[in-house]
Amino acid sequence: MRENTKVIEKLAFAILGLATLIIIAPVGIILFIVLWHGLPGLSFEFIFSMPREGMRAGGIFPAIVGTLVLTVGTAAFSIPVGILAAIYLNEYAGRNWLTRLFEISIINLAGIPSIVYGLFGLGLFVTFFGFGASILAGSLTLSIMTLPVIITATREALSAVPMAFREVSFSLGASRWQTVSRVVLPNAIPGILTGTILGLSRAAGETAPILFTVAAFYLPRLPQSPFDQAMALPYHIYVLSTQVPNVSLRTQYSTVLVLVLMVFILNIAAAYIRAKFRRRKTW
């Protein structure tokens, strides 16, 4: 009997391990495939030149620049608003219905499908504000989508700063803002940075919100102003793989590889910051 339960346990754990492997192995396989097929096509020319012959030849420079510009634009709006919102919720707000309402809104914002953000951006920024399909409209749309990620991460980082530090600061006659800006924020920055970078990396890889707000199908020049349309890597991948016939697989793979690399660099940066500051933390 006892033997039996031991065997069952072994079997159960083996199945659990196998399930974990089924999830994780494809990650490695996908990365390997993308690297294997994408690396040969990756060249200085591919990265830094304009697409030619209806995107079947040349490079993907405008798409890379477009994605970088959109990411910076997203950061410019979502970081300040997200951090301030988290400060409000964690440092200023009392425990009342209004706070609860704000929290529920954040949860819902986080759950809204990305394509609905696209519709919203089209309705508000492109049409209502008259920005047209533009970097400005796309960045703002992506910002709002990224906001809940940044708020949640920042809030977590803020609440990890011990209450006692705030109390000491108040006891020395500091106002709430002085306490936040001199004690709480400096100690929360690593956590904020990590969460923010992860949020931005997700924005950089998104396609649906930019479909109708900024993405250009084929625009072989660099954007000139915030009111310009722009190509973007994720949309470019979509276009190459489904909309344009006879694009070589190598070009497709290399484009995918560039996007994956960009997103992973951001993720690795976030992981590095997290690891580095965790070690340095003194309290």
Partner: peptide
């Protein structure tokens, strides 16, 4: 309030240096 806290200082039970 802020002047009061300047005038009336406090030393807590546990040593609490700021980071």
């Amino acid at each position: 309030l802020l002047s009061l806290r300047k005038l009336v200082g406090i030393v807590f039970a546990l040593p609490l240096p700021l980071p």
